[in-house]
């Protein structure tokens, strides 16, 4: 991209400069000063339009809707063209005096209009190329999202319908029916809600954290019945954070990893802590569990985690992040940051 940009710059301004040089020499004949001033024209045209490009990028004008972006970009292009014209005239007067052919106002105006057209054409070409690229990138991201979502829906369904979880759960319910019938009834309801959530879930959706937490709570209720006192849970979610949106099933994936690969691997169990706060408009969500990072089975977790991370990136942008880290003191933490 970078290389083709410079090739276009050199070719475009080179051709334009040569054309202009040809016309001028037809009037004035060859002159060292004229050759020199056109060489300079080529250089500062390239430099100025390069600056124009940098400004367009820095101010993110390409991302604006056309009705707002185009006037800004073409005004800037016009300003650049005027600077170019001024430089042409000044240099011509300094270097060649009256021989330049710029003595007449008419001549200067013709040159100015030529430069304005050239620089605006440059800008139009630049916008066309950049927009086309943005469009293709957007299409590509959308396709990527669709693929990832397809995978995650499948995986989420499989995770919720995780056979090991499901059959253990049914086994617990079977036992609970004679030990504590009321609790058994609750478990059946929880299992039903969890399955409903898994079936309704669309991976491309953002859902409110408080809604996601409902499914997470059902899941935790079922795992608590199975693991009993081995599973301790703490939830601390601020009012503001609860209203924020998260990609559906991301919290569920993290909590499930924490239970399945953290707590269930420990003979004496441990604690799962779910925290969410907003800080500088960003949502910071943390799922922490007792355990060691190396205890994590690379096969299962990393696909689930990688998928969650990918959906987070596609739905919330490159600035959103998901990190799994050893939090010290025998704790493992998964941290999600979603900027405002």
């Amino acid at each position: 991209m970078k290389r083709s940009y410079w090739i276009c710059q050199a070719a475009g301004w080179g051709a334009y400069t040569l054309a202009l040089f040809g016309i001028t020499t037809a009037y004035t004949g060859w002159h060292v000063a004229i050759v020199f001033s056109y060489a300079l024209f080529f250089l500062y045209s390239v430099a100025l339009t390069h600056l124009l490009r940098r400004e367009i990028r820095r101010r993110d004008w390409l991302a604006l809707p056309a009705a707002r972006g185009l006037p800004r970009m073409f005004s800037a292009a016009l300003a650049v063209a005027l600077i170019q014209t001024a430089l042409v005239v000044i240099l011509a007067l300094v270097l060649t005096g009256s021989q330049s052919g710029f003595g007449e106002v008419r001549q200067a105006a013709a040159t100015a209009s030529g430069i304005v057209v050239a620089t605006c054409a440059w800008t139009a070409a630049y916008i066309a190329v950049a927009w086309n690229r943005q469009y293709r990138e957007a299409r590509f991201r959308e396709m990527q999202l669709q693929i990832t979502v397809g995978q995650s829906e499948l995986r989420a369904l499989r995770a919720q319908v995780n056979p090991h979880f499901l059959f253990n759960c049914l086994n617990t319910i079977r036992g609970m029916i004679s030990e504590n019938p009321a609790r058994a009834q609750e478990m059946v309801t929880s299992l039903a809600s969890l399955f409903r959530h898994a079936i309704d879930f669309r991976g491309s959706q953002m859902i409110a954290l408080k809604d996601e937490m409902e499914a997470v709570s059902e899941y935790l209720a079922l795992e608590s019945a199975r693991l009993e006192e081995r599973l301790q849970v703490q939830i601390a979610i601020s009012e503001e954070a609860a209203q924020r949106n998260v990609p559906a099933m991301v919290v569920q994936t993290l909590v499930e990893n924490a239970v399945r690969h953290g707590i269930a691997e420990l003979p004496n169990g441990g604690l799962v802590t779910i925290r969410a706060v907003t800080k500088n408009q960003a949502l910071i969500l943390e799922v922490e569990n007792t355990g060691k990072l190396k205890d994590f089975n690379p096969n299962g977790v990393h696909t689930g985690l990688a998928n969650a991370r990918e959906r987070l990136r596609l739905l919330c942008g490159d600035k959103a992040s998901l990190e799994l880290s050893d939090a010290g003191k025998g704790l493992v933490a998964a941290t999600v940051v979603i900027p405002a």
């Binding site: 086994n171 036992g175 004679s178 199975r226 693991l227």
Partner: peptide
């Protein structure tokens, strides 16, 4: 799992 042992016992 206690419940699983209980269930098998039953």
């Amino acid at each position: 799992e206690r419940m699983a042992r209980q269930e098998l016992r039953r």
